[in-house]
Design a protein around this nucleic acid. Structure first.
Lengths: 206, 206
DNA sequence: CACAAGGCGGAGCATGCGCTCCGGATAAGA
DNA sequence: TCTTATCCGGAGCGCATGCTCCGCCTTGTG
């Protein structure tokens, strides 16, 4: 690995302006298309919408996966942040929890690729985005728990899984019955309230 | 449409024994593979496992869809029936509801194709299988409601959607944390109990 | 303005999958 | 046994999709 790589540290021309412009157009178009159609979308469609050729697209993102990851990291972070903001603006801890779910699930419905990806990776704490989201939920959990509002024994993992699970319900119902998932959310949250003292089944270690 | 179709009513030889045997082998193998890998499976894999050539497979089922439907109708019915039985054997109405979900969700975890298909078609009451399942849930709902155990305003659709939603959670967690979805089930069912009298959000018509 | 380094576009390759085609095999009636 | 309607197998077609290749063009520098 010690072979001389000439000029790999400096003396590199900065990227051309058209290259920068194109890269941004690609990411923008990809975000749009991934939100609409999910990760199974044809790469040609992304190229078409961003007004760029396949060669250009693959120069900037050597694998489709690279592009998808780039977009997903960006949009996932945006999404988690907006849910966090919504929770902060709510008054009491319980309202914060409710608002958090409502905001998160509403966003969910508008981004198929986020949903698909979240369902696959929610249990992996190494991913930056998931980790951030986990911290938010932990905080909400702690706040509600401190005021004795939350059912004892409920974990952050429970709340994360609930988010994934309801996310699926949202994806299925949002188009034809936009308020139906809200009923399910209400039911689940009521099941999380502290007046249920019966212990939950143990969560067997992975 | 009145063109003479010669001999379309009788005088047709019965199918050969090898044809019958092969047809059954195909359905059996397809059920296995669909359960493991979902509907996206390669048709060649089904042919291979049933020890039959592509020509034979496509003679019996002209489209992949036909085979999938055949298998799904069969397995969906089996699945719904086993959940119904479990509910019947339970004592009180609430135990029936709990057992029903537990049985249904356990079966769910073992059949990917059923899950994928159910998520797409649960709202369509024209499908025989879904209709049957709906009746079962309606009955459970009525029983629990009559004893004042069920939260007022909860509909059959709510319970169906809850099934789909938890089904997704099961699919995600069953391999690495087999008991985790049970916690979510418990939470949701507790949210369905009659001690929550706060009205649910309205379900806007489709 | 002249000239490269680097960027650009899209035809085309490789792979995977649904489905077809047809020469050969075989069950079942005469 | 002989005949034939019926069935069998699997090579291969058509299409979609991820990705590459290469001749032409743009940008930025002296």
């Amino acid at each position: 690995m010690a072979v001389a790589e000439p000029e790999n540290t400096a003396r590199r021309r900065p990227p051309r302006v058209d290259a920068i412009r194109n890269r941004e157009a690609i990411v923008e178009a990809a975000a749009e298309v991934l939100a609409e159609q999910g990760v199974a979308v044809d790469v040609r469609e992304i190229a078409r919408r961003s007004g760029v050729g396949m060669g250009t697209l693959y120069r900037h993102f050597p694998k489709k996966e690279d592009l998808v990851h780039t977009v997903l990291r960006r949009d996932f972070a945006k999404w988690a942040e907006s849910a966090r903001q919504a929770a902060i603006e709510a008054g009491d801890p319980w309202a914060a929890l409710t608002t958090f779910y409502q905001q998160a699930l509403t966003g969910y419905a508008r981004h198929r690729a986020i949903m698909e990806n979240f369902a696959l990776t929610w249990a992996d704490p190494d991913l930056e985005g998931i980790h951030q989201l986990r911290l938010v939920i932990e905080h909400l959990c702690a706040r509600a728990g401190a005021m004795g509002l939350l059912r004892p024994g409920v974990t952050t993992d429970d709340l994360l899984l609930l988010l994934v699970s309801l996310g699926h319900a949202v994806q299925i119902t949002d188009e034809c019955r936009p308020q139906m998932w809200n009923r399910l959310l209400r039911i689940s949250l009521d099941g999380l309230r502290a007046d249920h003292r019966a212990p939950l089944p143990p969560d067997t270690a992975r």
